[in-house]
Structures are given as C-alpha cells and as structure tokens.
Design a protein around this nucleic acid. Structure first.
Lengths: 139, 139
DNA sequence: TCATATTGTAACTATGATAGTTACATGAAA
DNA sequence: TTTCATGTAACTATCATAGTTACAATATGA
C-alpha cells in the first residue's frame, strides 16, 4: 500500500482519459491503469465529480468522462478537488488545544511557513494540465 | 497518538531549555513539558545531538543542554536535523519504478512543486529562533 | 565499592490513517 | 429481464509512528 497515492492514482487515470476525452472509461479499466481496485477509483473520481472535473454514468455503456477539455484541467485543480494538503497538522479537531505559550507561538511560525509552502506548491503545479500528461503518452 | 509530532515535541522542549540555557534537563523533565515519554525525548534529542544542536551527559547530574546560544538555533535548523520533509513521496526505495509515461511526466511536475514548497517552508521558518520561543514563555 | 540517577537502545505494543476488498443496492440499456 | 455499470457501506490489511518496557552502560558521590 502506498501512502499519499490518491493524487497520483487520480492524475494517472485522468491522464489516460485525456488521450481519448470522448470515450467513457469504466472504473475497472482505470483500476488496471493504476494497478489498484475499481472501488478505489470510484471513490477517488467521486471526489473529482463533486468538483465538476468528471462525470459518471451508470448502467450499460456507463463509465467516466472528463467534463472539460484536458488542457482546461490543471494538476492543481485535481489536487484541490481531492482536498489534500502537504502537511496535515496535529489533528484539525484539536481536542488538546495548546496551553503552553511556546506551543502557541510555535504554531504561528509553523503555520505561516506551511501556508507559504502550500501556495508555492499549488502555484508550481498550476501550469501542468492533463493535456501535458496525455502528450507524454502519445509520444 | 499525534502524527508528525516529532518536530513539535522537539521545539517545545527546546523552547523550555532556551529559557535556562545553562541548566541541564533530564529526559523525564522534558517528557513532562511535552506530555510524552522520556524515551521519545531521548530518541528525538538524539537526532539533534547528531546535528550538533544539543549535548547529553549520562549518570547523576546528567541531562541535556543546548550546544549553542538560543538565538543561534532556528526552527529550520531543528527541522532539518530531524530529517523531516513536508511530503514523503511514494516510498524512497521505489521497488515499483514508474513504467507508464504519464507517471514519469507526472513525477517531474510534482517533484518540482514539492521542491519549491520545501524551499518556501524552510525559508519561512529560518527567521524564528529558540530565543523567540523562550521569549513567549517569559512574558 | 556500592547505591543512585541518568542516558542509550533494542524490542515490543498501540494507535491511527489510508488503501484494499467484499457485498450488495441502484440504475441504465438492449 | 438480463447484463453491466456506478454508489456506497462495512470490513480487513498494511504501514508509519508514537508509546512502553526492560535493561545495559555510565557517571557521581557517600
């Protein structure tokens, strides 16, 4: 089992979809692309559907399609749709709020750093699109 | 159990040490500061000793001390000494090297983004020192 | 030299996040 | 009405990491 593989699974299968944007792909086909399980594909693409990046149809002739042109979907769009963060801080719920003044000051410095890191990351991956990934496959 | 707590544990106890830089602290005392176990402290500070940030002495009167002035140790120094990264990519060992052209192109784009994020993070936390953390406690 | 207090570290357990899997209901098409 | 697809709940497997126990090594001082 790989950790943090949701993004790479998603981008991998979306790259394949981008090669033939009109053709619906089943979750079984895509599971083969990414060497994983169809249910994992459905769960992951389900999140992307919620963000308007893909559509799905049930029944015979069903499957998944991109809902925009491949060059209109960036890696950053997918990253944000999956709601991932570079660094998951110590429990969002925070049932143990920091008491000590050190922890409080520390959280400020760290969080500012993380925010800048997050911005730098998203900015960097904003310029690569699914079309770029598909192009790599066509060669 | 908190994830990614090594850095926050380390900085928390180092902040306390920075208030009294000449006094040796035992791992038991520091475990109390950070609400954790003495062995966890020894393991964590052991890494920092390897990086020359702290020293330790065994036996009676033993314990841990900073090996530099508190304002000469930045949060970034500690972060680097612990060898943490914002994002641990899919297994450094890589017994499953990427075959598909999509994965290869993808890795390039993602890794460039991660490198930029990492740089932004370290740069941001470079300016906060243990002295700043200690100051928060003195007020 | 012995009692005591401390670090150093190996080995194990516990926890939690996440992927993988099974099973089945829902829905669409021929 | 058969077939094939998604949707999703519920469970299992895996792995990273923190926590814990146990004990050897070492330093101090009576």
């Amino acid at each position: 089992m790989k950790r943090n593989s949701k993004l790479s699974i998603a981008l991998h299968v979306l790259g394949h979809m981008a090669v033939k944007p009109e053709e619906p792909f089943t979750s079984e086909q895509m599971a083969a692309f990414a060497a994983t399980n169809p249910v994992v594909i459905r769960r992951t693409l389900g999140q992307l559907r919620g963000a308007g990046l893909v559509t799905s149809e049930r029944g015979k002739l069903g499957g998944w399609k991109l809902s925009k042109a491949p060059d209109a979907i960036s890696i950053a769009d997918v990253y944000r749709a999956l709601d991932e963060r570079l660094y998951v801080g110590n429990k969002g719920g925070d049932e143990n709020p920091p008491q000590c003044a050190i922890e409080i000051g520390l959280a400020g410095a760290i969080n500012q750093g993380l925010e800048r890191a997050e911005n730098a990351f998203q900015h960097s991956i904003e310029s690569t699109t699914l079309e770029d990934l598909a192009a790599a496959l066509r060669q």
